[in-house]
């Protein structure tokens, strides 16, 4: 255990080429998927939280169900759609970073939507009432509502990023954990542990934990600001 830890630190400090490639693929996938999820999820969450329309309750329930979707189910779905027997096989996306990003977008967008919906539903009536009382128009009211959501948006993004970087089920199924191509930190930890290469697994685990710690510190600071 001690020697594996020493080797892990040496790998990090020596900027091992394979380790750097895994980090680069992970960063590319997590940043892309969390950004796309943010762009899709924030407007959808604000809309669900602020507007009242028939079927809204059903949409909220569907979104909450999707928030708890098991990653392997998502992976299975994408595998079936893009594999040799699937309707999208001609796109040849299976075992690429693009399909990993797509699967993650499906997994983490509901998290962004859910977080935004909960927050906006809490403040929207007061914002609307106050804005109407001041005689402000619809566009200005919407702009004010968005301004109130700055910290929740940051918080939702960090949650999405944390979920994305730590996810293993879907990315291993659709990405295939191919070395130097689609291997990300979580899949690499599994792979190297299975091979008995603990030092690289530990090195990746340490980096993953450090990223998680950093993200959680930022989330705590954001939540502290939110709690007023």
């Amino acid at each position: 255990m001690g020697s594996a830890l020493q080797k892990a630190l040496a790998l990090i400090l020596s900027a091992d080429a394979e380790l750097l490639n895994i980090l680069s693929v992970t960063a590319r996938m997590s940043l892309q998927s969390s950004l796309i999820a943010l762009l899709l999820g924030v407007p959808l969450g604000i809309w669900l939280g602020a507007c009242r329309f028939p079927g809204r309750g059903a949409l909220v329930v569907v979104n909450r169900t999707l928030m708890g979707m098991p990653p392997v189910v998502c992976g299975l779905l994408f595998y079936m759609l893009f594999s040799g027997v699937g309707p999208f096989r001609h796109m040849k996306l299976l075992f690429t970073v693009q399909i990993m990003v797509m699967a993650q977008v499906v997994l983490i967008t509901p998290i962004v939507v859910g977080n935004m919906e909960t927050y906006v539903a809490g403040i929207a009536p007061a914002v609307r009432e106050t804005a109407k009382g001041l005689g402000l128009g619809g566009i200005k009211t919407f702009a004010l509502l968005c301004n109130e959501c700055v910290y929740p948006i940051i918080s939702a993004y960090l949650l999405a990023f944390a979920r994305s970087i730590a996810e293993v089920g879907a990315v291993s199924m659709v990405g295939g954990a191919i070395s130097w191509k689609t291997n990300v930190m979580t899949t690499a930890i599994m792979q190297y542990t299975n091979r008995g290469n603990f030092s690289l697994g530990i090195a990746l685990g340490m980096i993953l934990l450090a990223v998680s710690l950093f993200v959680n510190i930022v989330i705590s600071l954001v939540q502290r600001r939110l709690s007023r």
Partner: peptide
């Protein structure tokens, strides 16, 4: 008719007091 309304629960927007006053 232009109707101004102050609700019972006062909401302060996340901006300075001065900017809150200059909203309308």
């Amino acid at each position: 008719a232009a109707v101004g309304y102050l609700p019972q629960k006062h909401y302060a927007f996340r901006m300075s007091t001065r900017r809150n006053l200059l909203l309308s």
